[in-house]
């Protein structure tokens, strides 16, 4: 018994050093050397200011921007310091109410003859989903074009630039990065305003 305890404690100490110290340090050193951008959070830095991470969504619900998916994080949406889904059950009356409210709010702004894509009115698992589906982006193109007095084809071009296809042609789902798209839109829009002056 005493032997076992001694062996157990020493083995635990040795493996705490190996798996809790050496292993993460080796991974960190190799990761920082090989993939520094990813290892530090894939941050988007514009003129020295961090505008976000290309992997972490931000809340967009204003005019002239593509809207991101609803987010269930608290106390504010897209809180990247406390990720969370809504965890609402499928039959929870609150869930039905929330989806209906979102549909009603969006449907008045979108094309009349097209139903609202489901991802645009449901909260993601992390509350930080950086993407919307291409259908959800297409649904918003007329609104954004109208709000910015730009042509739909100009907006659609930006959407296409920020659409990621299935990886290797079949893995995952096609998707549009909302933060990157909106940064491009802001760019285009400020250029457009300069021209008008």
């Amino acid at each position: 018994m005493i032997t076992q305890i001694r062996q157990g404690v020493i083995t635990l100490a040795v493996f705490t050093i190996i798996t809790g110290g050496i292993y993460p340090l080796v991974v960190t050193i190799m990761a920082q050397a090989l993939f520094p951008a990813q290892a530090n959070g894939s941050l988007i830095v514009i003129n020295g200011t961090t505008a976000g991470s290309e992997l972490i969504g931000q809340s967009f619900s204003g005019t002239g921007h593509f809207w991101s998916r609803p987010s269930a994080t608290g106390p504010l949406p897209y809180n990247a310091a406390a990720s969370s889904g809504s965890n609402l059950g499928p039959l929870n009356p609150d869930f039905a109410t929330k989806v209906r409210e979102r549909v009603d709010a969006i449907a008045t702004t979108g094309p009349a003859n097209i139903a609202v894509p489901v991802d645009l009115v449901t909260a993601s698992g992390s509350g930080l989903d950086p993407h919307i589906s291409p259908a959800a982006a297409a649904y918003q193109v007329p609104r954004v074009a109208r709000e910015l007095s730009l042509t739909e084809s100009a907006i659609m071009k930006l959407v296409a630039n920020n659409t990621e296809r299935r990886q290797f042609g079949f893995l995952g789902e096609p998707r549009v990065n909302v933060l990157k798209l909106n940064l491009d839109i802001d760019n285009l829009n400020s250029g457009h305003k300069l021209e008008q002056r």
């Binding site: 809504s86 609402l88 449907a107 139903a115 894509p117 009115v121 993601s124 589906s133 297409a138 995952g172």
Partner: peptide, 27 residues
């Protein structure tokens, strides 16, 4: 419930459709 609320749950080239509550678009 999702259908009744007015969401488009059909799968298409541009959307996975289905029950997307709690799910991420990329998956």
């Amino acid at each position: 419930m999702l259908v009744k609320a007015g969401a488009d749950i059909r799968a298409s080239d541009g959307s996975s459709g289905g029950n997307t509550e709690g799910k991420e678009v990329r998956f």
